[in-house]
Each structure stands twice: as C-alpha cells, then as structure tokens.
Design a protein around this nucleic acid. Structure first.
Lengths: 338, 338
DNA sequence: TCTGGCACTCGCACGCGCAGAGTGCCAGGC
DNA sequence: GCCTGGCACTCTGCGCGTGCGAGTGCCAGA
C-alpha cells in the first residue's frame, strides 16, 4: 500500500495540475506544498506512483500528470466534497425561487450549474415513471377528437391529440374523465396500466372503442416519455477544455446532442450521493477525456431525476461535487414547494 | 459598375473558397472554371474587385477570399436558391411526419436542419401572441389552488399554478371555465386581454378576487411566454468552422446560449422569403464571423415563428437557403395538419 | 530512509534558408 | 482598348540544426 506521504504527493500533484494545467515537477511541488522533504525524495515517491499507474509523464523529462486512476484515488480517498459558502447557498436559492414553471426551474438550474462549475451542465426533467399522477384532463376539441392532458406531481405536463374511431359525446367524456381520475390520481405512473385495464367495460359498446383508444394513448405517453428529456447549458465552457481541443471537443458536442447517450450516462449513477465517472470509466467513447459528476434530485426523499456536469478530467472535483450536490438539494426543495 | 466577367470571377471565387476553405489564386480559378481568359486578366479583375471591397487577401502573396460585401453581392445577384431534390423532399416529409407532439416536431426540425445544412440549427417555438386560443382549461387541485392550462392552435400547451385568495368551489370554477372558453376560444392571443376584461363582474363578490387572480395569471402567461422559446441543435458542426476556431467558436457558443440574442436575430428577418445576414451585418458581436439564414414558418399563410441556421460566412448559401426554405415549408404543413 | 549532487534526456523555442504560390506590372499583340 | 505572356518581387510555411532549461534517475553518504 502507498504510504501516507505518497498519497500527499498525489494529492498535491492533482491540485497543482488542476490549477496550472501543466505537468508538475518535483521541485515545484516541494516549493508550493510544505511536504517537509526534498525534491529528491518526492522524485522517488513519484516514481512509485507512476509504477502503480496513478500518474504519468507526457514525455520523458516533463513533469507528471494524474491518470484516470490517479483522479479516482484522489476523489475516493484524498478529497472531500467542498461545501458551498453561505452566500453561495443564498444566491442559489434566490435564483431558483424566481422560476415560474417547471421549464423555468430546469432552465434556471442548468444556467446555475454551468455558472457555478464553469462546465457543461445537464439537467434531466423529472421522470414520468417515477412520478405520480396529479390529474388527467380530457378535452373535446371536435366530435371525434380529444385532447389528453397529463399533469404530474412535479408540475410536468404532457399532452396528446387522440383521433377517436367514433364520435364521443360530452356525457361519456365527462364520465371517462371522472372514472379515470378517481382511479389514477395520486398513483404512480408505473401502476397506471394495471389500474385502467378494466375501464372500457363500464361503457356502452359504441363508446368502448374510443375509450380504449384514449387509454392506449395515455399508456403510450407514459412509455414514450419514459425516454426522458434533458436540458443542456454552458457549452461555451467547452472552450476551456484544453489547448488541443478541436479534437476533444467534437465528440463531446456530439455526445451532448445524443440525448440517449446522456440519459444513459446519468442513469448509470446509482449511488444515493454524488457520483463521479472519470475518463475511461465513461462507457461512451467520445467522453473518454471527460469526467461526469452527477447526482439524483427529487421533490421528496426519492430521486425523480438526475442532474450533473460534464467537464475535463482535469477539473476541481471537490468544488464541482459541492456545487452539484447543493444545486440538487435546492432544486428538490423548489419542486417540493410547487 | 462591374462588368459581367468580373461578376463571374467573384462567383467563381466564392464557390471555390467555400469548397476548399483556402484563398483562391488566379491560376487555380482559370483552371477550374472556364472563364475563357488567362490568369493575368483574371488578376486584373481581382485587383478591381479588391478595390471595390468585394474580396481581400489575408496577406500579400496569398490568394483572395470574399469579404462580407462580396458574399452579399453573391447572395443577392449571383446565386439563386438551390431547390431540394425530390428524394430529399420526401425524406424531409417522412422524417417530420413521425412526430407525436409539438415538442417532437420542433426537435425533429432542429435535427433535420442541422443534418441537411451541416450547421447549427435554431428553431423557434410557434409564437403565442400570433397564435389563437384553442382551449383554456381550469383544474381544481386543492380548495384554493387552480391549475390553468392554455392550449394553442399550434398544439402548444402552457400551464400555470394559481394560488387563489379564497377557496373556489367546483360550481364557480366550471362557470368560469365555460365563460372563459366561450369568450376566447378561436381568438387571437393579442385580443384576449380585451375580451376577458369584464368577466369578473358576472361572479359573486366572494369569488371575484379569485377570478381576477386567475385572469391575471392568464394574461401574465401570454406576456411572459411572448419571450419565446427556442431549440438548438447541431452544435457539433461548429467544429467545422475553420482552423483558427478556438477564438471564433467561443462567442458563438455564448451567443447561442443567450436566447434573447437569438430571438432578436431571428426577429430581425422581416422578409417574406429567406433572409440572409452575413458577418458584420449581424448586430451581435460574437456572430460577426458567422452568417444567419432564416425564414418564417407557419401553419397557415402567416408566419407564426422563425427557424434558421447559423454557420460560417464561408457557407454554401444556395444549398443552405434551399434547405431552410424547404424545411420551413414542410414544418408549416405538419403544423397545419395537427 | 532521506538528501544533495550530477549526468543525462528531451521537448521547445529560435533562427535560418529554401521552395512554392501568388501577385503586380509592363511591354507587346490582336 | 483590352487581353496576354513574362518577369521580378513578396510573403508564408516548412524542414533543419542548435542551445537552453526543466525535469528526471541514480548513486553515494548521512
């Protein structure tokens, strides 16, 4: 196992490299951190760290830079989560409280995260399947045309147009609306299919087709929107990625446009706390030189969606993790209130 | 005035430069375009074009590149709009027809535009103020809490939570819903304020406060959402901007995140047809080295919103204009159908 | 186990010269 | 009057060699 001092050396290397963006040498280390030993000793430690794969040199006779494995150790063992200061927390809260609706909450969250971390922010809309139904509304727009509006407890609204196989009167429509709501209001989305199963039986034969059509549209909405939406912001921060960035930035931008990729990325984070995926730990190739810091957020105790940031592996992990955690917490509060 | 041949030379320069991304010289020009004259003659023409400010050389003894003014002349006089081929048109139509709701229409449009033009696509959501009301729905969520749902003829849905000053029964709520819809359904949003003015008078004194609150939330929604939403896509295409791109790309990404800037940009395009703003013609500084090609689209004869692309001034104008125009046309059709 | 010293390696910045592309201009021809 | 071929000139980009400095690895001694 690595000695205490070697871990200190690794921590110092990570911190310096994150700050300067340049390979760090033994002399510079002893000057900037009071390690209490000489550069020569540090050199031996560095050789050992390199042997173990925690650091590497870009080329002989350059300083060392941390590897993905080095960052991993740093995040797991050497660094905590840096909490936000009180003024920062107040600012976050104030900014989020100005939101007028769910879209606005998400939009503000993205901006906030991007600003705080100076990285690319990704916020997932509160998931439908893990939410509960607040209300289902049916509107008759034409004799054989119904609009279905679905409202979740997180304030999300989905609507669909339904073309009915036969004209559908106001009476049966009101009936369906009432029955539907009494069945599903307050229930989780995942329970809905089971709950509405026998609803058509309560209707006259002539309306049964229409009722089934409406219900299947409702179920479709649940499934389709399970493929959830995201909002992204702070892409301008990509320009601070590094010097060589034309090659790096391209796949990142592409990955960011692939919602599926991003959702998978966020979905992989299973821990209750902040999750960090470093470099090659990300399954997607384009993100091999980035790190993803993500966390779940929710209106109650349970996470209904994820949010996070994407940045260079060379990032300020403690600060980023602190910001991500704080934002998630306050977004959860805002959602619970509304 | 410039002679016919000089215009030909300018056209050839623009075409070559757009293709190769490199300054074009007199010799290359005569080889690739059958101008029927020698390089020396072309050189004289180029000198004249430079004198007039249509082209410039990056440095002495390099070829010429078009200036913003040169592109302007090219777009206005020398190039038409390249129509899409029949297969392309079919592909566009097929792709857009798969959309399930408005969000999806917009999302697909963005992807389509980005793919067709290989540039950054911007699509504005159909505007509220220029739309008409299809339906207003009021849902009682708690004794003193009402959800307001607004549905437009373009399929857009907006919702707001209303905290009432006093409990509001189902009876008055149904009454308000009916009166409200009979007043505003089918009317333009801009007419709504006038139409609902005297609605509170029809209610009992105890409910009037609540009715006013609901109405003012409705009006607020109209105003706030007048600040309209956008969707952006194809940012990965920014990497094809040029070699020097770190400096160029940054302000562009920043501008793209400022919805206000983009909305203004699209808003400036007043023509009924495709509008092109080249380089410094764009008011926003960050976009001084980009061109914006935009056009209005709408479900009926009238434009309800804009869409367009942002790319390097060195772009294929005829092709881009053709793609933008075609996509706008088909999106309009899709919206009219739904 | 740590330290100071020393030789060694390499990347990088700098200066130089050369080749190539492209221009401007001029004198001559149609 | 306009076009053309020829010629001298200018500039950039590239390859090459050199010197410098940062940083390392190793070793002997405390």
């Amino acid at each position: 196992m690595l000695s205490e001092r070697r871990l200190q050396v690794l921590r110092a290397i990570v911190q310096d490299y994150v700050g300067t963006e340049e390979p760090v040498g033994s002399k510079a280390l002893t000057e900037r951190h009071s390690l209490g030993v000489s550069p020569a000793t540090v050199r031996n430690d560095m050789a050992a760290l390199e042997e173990e794969g925690f650091i590497a040199q870009p080329h002989t006779s350059a300083g060392r830079i941390p590897t993905d494995k080095g960052y991993r150790l740093f995040v797991d063992k050497l660094a905590g989560v840096k909490p936000m200061t009180a003024p920062e927390r107040r600012a976050i809260q104030n900014f989020l409280e100005g939101a007028v609706d769910l879209d606005d909450v998400v939009a503000r969250t993205v901006r906030l995260l991007a600003q705080l971390t100076r990285q690319v922010a990704v916020v997932q809309y509160p998931s439908l399947t893990r939410s509960t139904v607040r209300h289902v509304e049916l509107l008759s727009l034409a004799p054989a045309r119904v609009m279905l509006v679905l409202i979740t407890d997180t304030g999300r609204v989905e609507q669909r147009m339904v073309d009915c196989p036969a004209p559908f009167g106001e009476g049966p429509l009101a009936d369906l609306r009432a029955r539907l709501n009494s069945k599903v209001a307050g229930r989780r989305f995942s329970d809905v299919p089971r709950l509405v199963e026998d609803l058509p039986d309560a209707f006259e034969a002539e309306d049964r087709g229409t009722v089934s059509t409406v219900l299947s549209t409702l179920l479709e909405t649940l499934v389709e929107e399970n493929e959830e939406r995201l909002m992204i912001g702070g892409t301008a921060n990509l320009t601070r990625f590094g010097h060589d960035f034309p090659l790096v930035i391209r796949p990142v931008l592409e990955a960011l446009e692939e919602q599926v990729v991003l959702l998978k990325l966020l979905g992989e984070a299973k821990d209750p706390g902040v999750t960090v995926r470093i470099g090659h730990e990300n399954a997607h190739e384009g993100l091999n030189s980035t790190s993803v810091v993500s966390v779940g957020y929710g209106s109650g105790g349970e996470a209904v969606a994820k949010l996070g940031v994407v940045g260079p592996t060379r990032m300020d992990y403690p600060g980023t993790m602190g910001a991500v955690r704080a934002v998630a917490r306050y977004v959860g509060q805002i959602l619970a209130e509304s």
